[in-house]
Design a protein around this nucleic acid. Structure first.
Length: 732
DNA sequence: TTCGTCACG
DNA sequence: ACGTACGTGACGAAT
């Protein structure tokens, strides 16, 4: 009798790669664990005298892909679950236990409930590779023939690019391009010799004149080529324009997939493949790992790029169909696609940040921070890490015995609203609050921003178009949408953001756009009239809610009315309002009731959008953007409540995002059409910043004001404030 | 990676 | 009886 010691991870790995792709009902690839169980069962059945022992040790973790490691763990769980004495001595001098074999059969069935393994479709592509100029010319010629004519003859392309690791930020390495047209043929063209970035760029430009191009993350390729529809566009956003229905356009599967479902976390090309084609596709990082594409095998690069290009080609019509069915084609073709180019242009433009001044500001902060540190340690009677909420909580609430509001999972809450209550009576707490504020300014802003200044002296943020659930854009690396504003000391940071020599900033922002959108969407007469009066909206609301003449509204009344206005937009709850105003829940409830009495249309509207979202599971903006709200069907009460607040807020925040995007398109293309030197450089949700040539100040002010005010026709005016300044502190 | 905190609209 | 304002991203600490 022999004892077979088997390395479990290798056993799984062999199965994983030997088996066809099998998936469970969720579409997860379970080839490894399924194949391993099947093989084990066979071995036991065939070789009744054998004895198997599995070793789950792994010497070199990085040798295995995450999928193999996952499935090995799953395999271990299943074996543990056998509860048959001695899987390790199966025969025990006897034959393999029938119970064990039955158990393994049961587990196989569990993995595949139908009793059959669902065989997932695989890519069946004819992949070829060439950099031969003559061949490449021929390929683009054929692609052009294929793509000319039928709009659904998408040409899929995928640029194999990677951000350079060390060189100045934003630079990208291009390794090649995969091109897919016709059914199954995909060609990978590595960039070498005559095949350069500009060669590929020209070819794509030409194709974009006559053909439908489908890709993934189109913004990533705009430095190679400007699509024809962008270079030809001068009219901005045109409500009457239905040209997109017949004329070929660029199609970004990433943006399309995002619009179809904006609440996902993952919009990788792998994820799109799984969702729309049901074909699993190994993740890019799992294939190329941390060493990057540069080190990767040429065959793997071609294989990956070709599959990605095919996915773009195959998914484009499916996603387009979905966009059409959900009424989002206009949003996609006339707003999001042109916007992607504008975001690219803004990123490329960047904004000057003065490095020396950031350094000086940082040094100044450091002095005060170390002073505070000393004082805090003395008052505490010990040294500790003030930045650690855990250590801070122990010092304040245990060592010093201050009254604690236990809040977080892991211990005492030391959040600002808690500390602020203690600060008046405890100097150490006031010092800690100051320390916190300065530490934040130093780490995130002074030092943080300095690290992003590129070789041209400018910061090039990334504007992300496919992140938020509501349709807003976001900004990362660095985030330029959360530069301090509310406190003077923080606001000073904005002085380091300056226009280029001789230029000025023009900064325009919408006045209470979300509340105006609420007025429009709710059709509440009182609120609409209030906006037509053109006076301070919070004061008007206070006057109506508290039944006092407009002139007699007290500052407190105005403040309360303003908080309620905000609360309404967020999807109000009496608790939230009470927290914000530091009042009791019942008082907050009273304010809300009075507000709804004043503006009954708002209440009706909120009930209506909740009912509608409950009925079809999504909320809608004025421009048809959808946000699914699965929380409304949750069994958990709090989650359902959250869903209701989202149903109230998403149409408003989302419509504001839509309107701002339209404004950006109109501003951008007017600047282009009028051949101005000024450039759009920032968007902060309801605010646009333009680096403005001195002789274009008035023109740009007019463009910003008019294009933003007229981006949509609402039943209330949209008001825009525009300021000129020599830095962002001045212009805001 | 996750958490707590805090910057913005 | 429970635990909440909506939407983001970055940092330092702890895991």
């Amino acid at each position: 009798m022999s004892i077979n010691v088997i390395d479990a991870t290798n056993f799984i790995k062999d199965a994983f790669y030997a088996m066809p792709v099998f998936s469970d009902e969720n579409g997860n690839n379970i080839s490894g664990v399924y194949g391993a169980l099947y093989k084990l069962k066979s071995m036991l059945s065939e070789n009744e005298e054998a004895l198997f022992a599995f070793s789950f040790e792994r010497d070199n973790e990085s040798e295995y892909t995450p999928a193999v490691v996952d499935q090995t763990e799953k395999f271990a769980e299943i074996l543990k679950g056998a509860e048959i004495p001695g899987l390790l001595d199966v025969s025990n001098g006897e034959s393999a236990s029938p119970e064990l074999i039955a158990y393994l059969e049961g587990e196989l069935l569990k993995l595949s409930p139908t009793g059959k393994v669902s065989v997932v479709p695989k890519f069946e592509l004819n992949i070829s590779v060439t950099s031969d100029l003559g061949e490449v010319e021929e390929i683009f010629k054929k692609a052009h023939e294929y793509g000319t004519g039928a709009i659904d003859n998408y040409i899929g392309y995928f640029l194999m690019r990677e951000r350079e690791a060390d060189k100045s930020l934003g630079k990208k390495d291009t390794f090649g391009i995969a091109l897919c047209y016709g059914e199954k043929n995909v060609i990978y063209i590595p960039l070498e010799n005559f095949i350069t970035e500009s060669y590929i760029g020209n070819k794509l430009s030409e194709l974009s004149k006559d053909c439908s191009l489908a890709t993934f993350d189109i913004k990533d390729g705009y430095d190679l080529f400007m699509p024809f529809e962008i270079s030809e566009r001068t009219t901005g956003y045109d409500k009457e324009d239905t040209g997109y229905l017949t004329s070929p356009k660029c199609f970004d599967t990433l943006i399309g997939a995002y619009l179809c479902n904006p609440i996902k976390n993952d919009y990788s090309v792998e994820d799109i493949s799984k969702e729309y084609l049901k074909i699993p596709f190994e993740k890019r990082n799992d294939i190329f790992g941390k060493s990057g594409i540069k080190e990767a095998d040429a065959g793997k690069i071609a294989d990956y790029a070709c599959k990605a290009a095919y996915i773009c080609k195959a998914c484009a019509p499916l996603i387009r169909e979905k966009l059409s069915k959900t009424g989002m084609e206009n949003l996609f073709y006339n707003i999001e696609m042109p916007l992607s180019y504008i975001l690219f242009a803004m990123e490329k433009e960047g904004i000057i940040a003065k490095k020396d001044e950031l350094k000086a500001y940082s040094d100044k902060l450091a002095v005060r921070i170390s002073e505070l540190e000393k004082v805090i340690y003395e008052a505490a009677g010990c040294e500790f890490n003030i930045n650690s909420p855990k250590q801070l909580g122990e010092v304040l609430f245990e060592k010093l015995g201050l009254p604690a509001e236990k809040k977080t999972k892991s211990g005492y809450s030391t959040a600002a609203d808690v500390l602020e209550k203690l600060a008046p009576d405890n100097k150490i707490v006031a010092d800690i609050l100051e320390y916190r504020g300065l530490a934040k300014l130093k780490s995130t802003y002074a030092d943080g921003l300095a690290a992003y200044i590129a070789g041209d002296g400018r910061i090039h943020t990334s504007f992300n178009q496919t992140i938020t659930a509501t349709g807003r854009i976001s900004s990362t690396e660095p985030n330029l949408q959360n530069i301090p504003m509310r406190t003077e000391e923080g606001r000073l940071i904005r002085k380091v953001f300056v226009p280029k020599e001789g230029y000025v900033f023009a900064d325009a922002d919408y006045s209470q756009i979300e509340l105006r959108i609420l007025a429009h969407m709710s059709e509440d007469k009182g609120l609409i009239d209030a906006y037509h009066e053109g006076k301070d909206i919070h004061r008007i609301t206070a006057s109506k809610v508290f039944h006092v003449p407009f002139e007699d509204v007290t500052p407190l009344q105005r403040r309360n009315a303003k908080a309620v206005n905000f609360g309404i937009v967020y999807g109000i709850s009496s608790f939230g309002l009470s927290q914000d105003l530091s009042i009791s829940r019942s008082e907050a409830k009273e304010y809300m009731d009075k507000y709804f009495e004043t503006y009954p249309g708002v209440k009706e509207y909120q009930d209506k959008v909740i009912a509608s979202a409950k009925a079809d599971g999504v909320s809608d903006t004025l421009f048809g953007r959808k946000r699914p709200i699965p929380e409304l069907k949750a069994s958990n009460y709090n989650l359902r409540q959250f869903g209701e607040r989202v149903a109230m807020n998403a149409p408003i925040q989302g419509t504001a995002a839509d309107i701002m995007k339209i404004a950006m398109i109109n501003v951008f293309f007017r600047i282009k059409r009028e051949n101005l030197k000024s450039r759009l450089i920032l968007q902060i949700h309801d605010e646009l910043v333009i680096e403005t040539a001195p002789d274009e100040k008035d023109t740009v002010t007019e463009i910003l004001t008019k294009e933003m005010e007229n981006a949509a026709d609402l039943s209330v005016p949209m008001e825009v404030d525009c300021h000129i300044g020599n830095d962002w502190y001045e212009s805001k």
